[in-house]
Simulated assay, not measured.
Amino acid sequence: MFMLDQSSKAVERIAKGRRRAAATLGIGLAFCLGGMPAAQAQPASSLMPVTFIAPYPPGGTVDALARAFAHAYSQETGRSFVVENRPGAGGNIGLATLARAAPDGNTIAIVSANMLTTNRWLYASLPVDPDKDVAPVAFIGRVPFVLVINNSIPANTLPELIALMKSKTQQFNFGSSGIGNTAHLFGELFKSRAGVEMVHVPYKSSGQTLQEVMAGRLQLVFSTPTELMPLLARDAVRPIAVASDERLAALPELPTLKELGLPGFETPTWFGIIAPGGTPPEIVDEYNSLTRKIMQRPDVRQRLEQIGASGQAMTPDEFRSFIADESSKWKEIVEQSGARLE
């Protein structure tokens, strides 16, 4: 009896040790990387699904990217990645949800630029510390803004538009999906560098702003290619310029702001993958390697091209430095705009 009890206890100790090891290694055990084909990684499918947080509503660029990457992650690892939309407060709700999760690789999130850069200067307080409660994992790419105007505006080029705005023959309103978001701040930057006046009108979603431009209640808006393509296909709005270093493959005839005499408008919107703060470096590195791998997949590359994203490989440390540089750059712009959120 004593020997049976001791054996049972030994088995239990071994089982506990294995559970602790699995929790510590987390996604590392699941991925089975190092050149092993996905077919050989089938035991991973028996593990719990990975929660993939998208901090914005369904239908937008963030959601579209999250679903494309979740599908690719699942195919590469044999493990289920489930997108969970947690919209609200400029991405802060999704960020807080991620920060509360266990740092074991079972929860990750897609992040947009404002969540880790401008929000810290906009909000009186944040639910998380974006430097300590988040582990940067992998950079996905930049997505440019396209400046579009209502079709009734008598301007076909940027110089014509700026001249019309400076003539003050009519008021120009531009919209965004909320005070302090990237489109709003980009509009404030445009005002300053182009030397024009226009009034910001906040809405609940970027889709609403496009409807308002088509209706003529807004004169212009800065939006992403993903949201604009259906409208441009039917000439519902007029594109003027793109804020990127190079012309878009999807809109090769559209000049950049730099070409038109307004340099310094680097693409303001970017996306990346993050994990909860305290996630072990080996898990972060494996996610980084996996993300780099799937970004070479034809289906993912096609999706990135569709939204106008220009990818760039970064290590987790490089991504962290990039976030710090972007945060410093946008601090001045936020202060100039006077935008503040509670």
Rank of each mutant, 00 (worst) to 15 (best):
E12K: 13
I14G: 00
A23D: 05
A23N: 09
C32H: 13
A39T: 14
A41G: 02
P49S: 14
Y56H: 15
P58C: 11
G59E: 04
L65P: 09
A70R: 03
A72Y: 02
S74N: 07
Q75E: 15
V83R: 12
G90W: 00
I93T: 08
A102R: 14
A102D: 00
I110Q: 07
A113W: 05
P127Y: 05
D131I: 11
A138C: 03
V143Y: 00
V148A: 03
I149A: 09
I149S: 06
I149M: 00
N151W: 03
P159T: 14
S167A: 13
S177D: 15
T182Y: 01
R193C: 09
G195S: 07
V196A: 00
V199P: 06
H200K: 09
P202L: 08
E212G: 10
M214G: 12
A215T: 10
F222A: 04
S223F: 08
M229F: 12
P230C: 07
A233K: 08
V237W: 04
V242H: 00
S244R: 00
D245L: 04
R247Y: 03
L248Q: 05
G261Q: 06
G261R: 06
F265C: 12
P268K: 08
G272M: 04
A275R: 09
I283Q: 05
V284D: 06
Y287T: 10
N288G: 01
K293A: 12
M295Q: 12
P298H: 05
Q302R: 13
Q302S: 13
Q306D: 15
M314Q: 08
T315V: 01
D317E: 09
F319Y: 14
A324Q: 06
W330Q: 10
W330K: 09
K331T: 03
I333C: 00
I333M: 02
E335A: 06
G338K: 06
L341T: 13
